[in-house]
């Protein structure tokens, strides 16, 4: 499974294909705080890059591929600024999802 979903972190590993862009977006949309770990991603499809650029996803570990870093530069920059205390700050951001969602996550 190239993208594994933990409580608040999506871990991308190996080759992430176009088919995974949809689930990732849904997962991101369902969360107020969402981290994406690209540290082990070898190849990431453009559609996923687009999702990462277009959403507020915080990239917790940058990819090793320099091209990917270059292309994701805006998202990485945003993540860097967001990371210190990001969890608490993001948590107080306007709530878009019903609170039950977090409970569902925990379960």
């Amino acid at each position: 499974m190239p993208i594994g979903y933990l409580n608040v972190t999506a871990v991308c590993e190996g080759v992430c294909t176009v088919d995974e862009a949809g689930p990732l977006l849904n997962w991101l949309n369902a969360r107020r705080v969402a981290l994406v770990d690209l540290g082990e991603a070898a190849q990431v499809h453009t559609a996923i890059v687009q999702v990462l650029l277009a959403t507020n996803a915080i990239i917790s570990a940058a990819p090793r591929d320099p091209l990917l870093c270059e292309v994701l530069a805006p998202a990485l920059e945003r993540s860097k600024q967001a990371r210190p205390g990001s969890l608490s700050r993001q948590a107080t951001a306007p709530v878009r999802e019903p609170p039950s969602d977090a409970a569902a996550d925990a379960a």
Binding site: V18, A21, G22, L24, L25, L28, N29, T46, A47, I48, V49, Q50, V51, L53, A54, T55, N56, L67, E70, V71, L72, A73
Partner: peptide, 22 residues
């Protein structure tokens, strides 16, 4: 290498991940 949005990004909820906007 730069990737930029062709049209301004829609909100995350409205984003269609399968339409290339880069």
């Amino acid at each position: 290498t730069r990737a930029t949005a062709a049209a301004p990004w829609p909100t995350a909820a409205e984003l269609d991940p399968f339409v290339c906007n880069l």
